[in-house]
């Protein structure tokens, strides 16, 4: 059974069996077998066979499995889809999406393969990588282009290149793109995945970046190296204090309902709808991360 937690995604290049096998033993929620950037032009066929057989016959247990295919306009895409759909990952990660029409065309191709192969139609979902200003401008349409789209992720390096912007650690150059993608994801009810933090030797920088990731409201983040996984998982797992606070909010609301008091007050402050929503989200995240949370509904 697939893990539906999407806090961390780790890429494993489709060229190295040892790295693909090792990737299944880390703590990431989502494992992305890559056919795109990490594979040289002369090894695309070999990577496709390797990833297909890995997902079909050696799938790591308890992980959400994705295959990142080559670009929408690449000559590799059609064969990548033939292999990827038949391997039956949880989702296909589509790079550099800029228009809803592109997603619709891939949806049609995937549906045709599912029908031809006798597989359930709609079983394979999509994660759309938004990696340019055009993609950001179309994010809302992309998010609803197909029922298969369950997540969107910002590709910050390509996005900043498309903007002629400089990529910096504070990340103000991607602040708008992060928010635009997040809002599109929230409007569509899908998962919002933040950009990678590229410097694997800067744990303090990653920590600061994660503060932004969490404050904005992302659901997950892609890792470029296994050593980033625990920090990113931690970012999306509520602390015991946050869980207790959320429980107290819901307990106060329950008590107010029982006593038919019009206004619910906790610690001298009014409990309003946004507080209730945040409390429920916190408890849902805790439960999703395997933390036992009881006592309130």
């Amino acid at each position: 059974m697939a893990n539906e937690l999407m806090r961390t995604s780790l890429y494993a290049g489709g060229t190295s069996p040892v790295k693909m096998i090792q990737a299944g033993f880390y703590n990431e929620d989502c494992l992305v077998y890559d056919l795109e950037d990490s594979v040289s032009a002369g090894e695309k066929d070999a990577a496709r066979f390797l990833v297909y057989n890995a997902v079909k016959y050696q799938r790591p247990a308890g992980k959400y499995i994705l295959i990142r295919v080559n670009g929408i306009y690449s000559q590799e895409l059609d064969e990548d889809l033939e292999a990827a759909v038949r391997a039956q990952p949880d989702a296909i990660r589509i790079p550099k999406v800029e228009y809803a029409e592109e997603v619709k065309r891939i949806d049609e191709k995937v549906t045709a393969i599912e029908q031809k192969a006798g597989l359930p139609v709609g079983g394979v979902k999509f994660w759309c990588n938004i990696e340019s200003y055009l993609g950001v401008l179309s994010a809302q349409q992309i998010a609803t282009a197909s029922p298969r789209v369950v997540a969107m992720a910002l590709g910050a390096e390509d996005f900043t290149a498309s903007m002629s912007a400089q990529r910096t650690k504070p990340g103000w150059e991607i602040f708008y793109a992060r928010n635009a993608i997040l809002m599109a994801c929230r409007a569509a009810g899908i998962s919002a995945q933040d950009a990678v933090f590229s410097d694997i030797n800067d744990p303090e920088g990653l920590k600061k970046d994660l503060e932004m990731t969490r404050a904005l409201g992302f659901d997950g983040k892609t890792c470029v190296h296994p050593r980033q996984i625990d920090a990113v998982n931690g970012c999306f797992t509520p602390s015991p204090k946050e869980i207790r606070n959320a429980q107290r909010v819901l307990e106060a609301l329950e008590e107010a309902a029982r006593n038919h008091t019009g206004v619910c007050v906790l610690d001298g402050g009014m409990v309003d709808k946004p507080m209730e929503l945040r409390a429920r989200t916190t408890l849902a995240k805790a439960a999703a991360a395997g933390i036992k949370v009881g006592g309130v509904k």
Partner: peptide, 16 residues
């Protein structure tokens, strides 16, 4: 190599 790797490498070698 695990079995899935041998299978993948063979498929690729035959096609090439």
């Amino acid at each position: 190599a695990l079995d899935f790797v041998i299978r993948a490498r063979m498929q690729c070698a035959v096609c090439r």
